[in-house]
Design a protein around this nucleic acid. Structure first.
Lengths: 214, 214
DNA sequence: TTTTCTTTAGGTAGAACTACCTAGAAAATT
DNA sequence: AATTTTCTAGGTAGTTCTACCTAAAGAAAA
């Protein structure tokens, strides 16, 4: 027998969480393992409970659902994010797409196929509400995250390149005739600018984006 | 003025190393910074001397030239490997191609263009002896290393998977209900088995091969 | 049965990176 | 000219990983 799909619900309306739970209760393979009524609490609980999928509302006190998804992405979390929202606005959708979000579902169309959506997402697929999916077509062409690499100065990009070659700060310092403290300082600034956190987030970012570094 | 190209020669025949040196002596921009007569010594010296290019014979006592190239690759070394060999066999060539080797030169055709070959390789190009280059065309389709992942036990592979998700030893230990020392010990064993060395060699290997981990 | 391999876990040391600081000099902007 | 940004470099602390050890218990193989 297959393992249950573990779900976490984040929405500031109690009645809405109830509704979701009742929809999901029909399916024995889906298990709601927790819920939160604001973004900060949601992020904390997600980090701890590690569900398979997070159902996130955009409008919440504190961190928004998109903020939570962003933090999950920054932490290289394996949790798949589904956005549940009333917003049809293109802006929100575009932002969500930048965040590796697996599904974007309008609240007025969930009753029908939320379970289906969850199962597909759990298998690695994407799901976009029909009312929204038109945006997707135009998108994808101009793919290519307007990477935040432009935020970096040229020195920082140079160092990022060397990091991508798996060089240590010490090696980089030698190569550029700089103090290792200078290199470490640049690393820190890069991490701050890109919102990278944790032990090897910078190295991994550098490797994954090495082709984009100009 | 451009920096000299630093070369290292590994071959078990003294007379052959002499020959190479005399060919290379004609060019002032090429500098032979060391040589070795067996694979183990070669690898040790390469790690220490860090030349730009390593000329490796396949047939050597101990580690073969291909073994040396493999270990260099595993260490994410920046050293470019050129294989010099008498073997026209396809097997050897195929193996070499899996190892990011920059040039594969038959010994009976080196006198003419070894210098040229070295310079091209130094600029990032590839060079394959004409007698061999026919193999190349068919190749490239069935790409896919028969990775040495089989050397690992199932526990080790499990941990490697978690490492590929950029989890720290601490996180892995928590997840598997083991001591962090156990995890660290497994990491060490994996590194030893795969010949990985240096600060983040394991993390990078894990990420690059995450799809292959079964 | 003996030997080897695997898994577990601890000891010690050092290198590397992260996370925050401060601060001066140079360069670029306003 | 004044302000801001960038680059440089140091201080301190703590975490993570590497690199060596040893060692016991259990499983698998010889």
């Amino acid at each position: 027998m297959r393992k249950n799909i573990k779900i976490f619900i984040a929405d500031d309306h109690h009645i809405f969480r109830k509704g979701i739970r009742s929809i999901l209760a029909d399916d024995k393979t889906i298990e709601v393992i927790g819920e939160a009524s604001n973004g900060d609490e949601a992020f904390e609980m997600l980090s701890r409970l590690k569900p398979d999928i997070a159902l996130l509302d955009i409008d919440m006190p504190g961190l928004s659902g998109l903020d939570v998804a962003r933090k999950l992405k920054q932490n290289n979390s394996q949790i798949k994010s589904i956005i549940l929202t009333i917003h049809k606005d293109r802006e929100y959708f575009d932002e969500a797409m930048e965040l590796d979000i697996k599904a974007y579902v309008l609240k007025d169309s969930i009753a029908n196929d939320l379970i289906d959506c969850i199962k597909k997402v759990n298998e690695g697929a994407y799901y976009i509400s029909p009312a929204i999916s038109g945006y997707l077509v135009e998108k994808r062409a101009g793919r290519k995250e307007p990477t935040q690499l432009d935020k970096l100065t040229s020195t920082e990009k140079q160092i990022l390149k060397l990091i991508a070659q798996n060089k240590t700060s010490h090696q980089i310092a030698d190569e550029l005739f700089r103090s290792i403290r200078t290199i470490e300082n640049h690393r820190n600034n890069i991490c701050t600018k890109l919102g990278l956190k944790g032990p090897h987030a910078l190295l991994i970012f550098a490797i994954e984006n090495k082709d984009q570094i100009s």
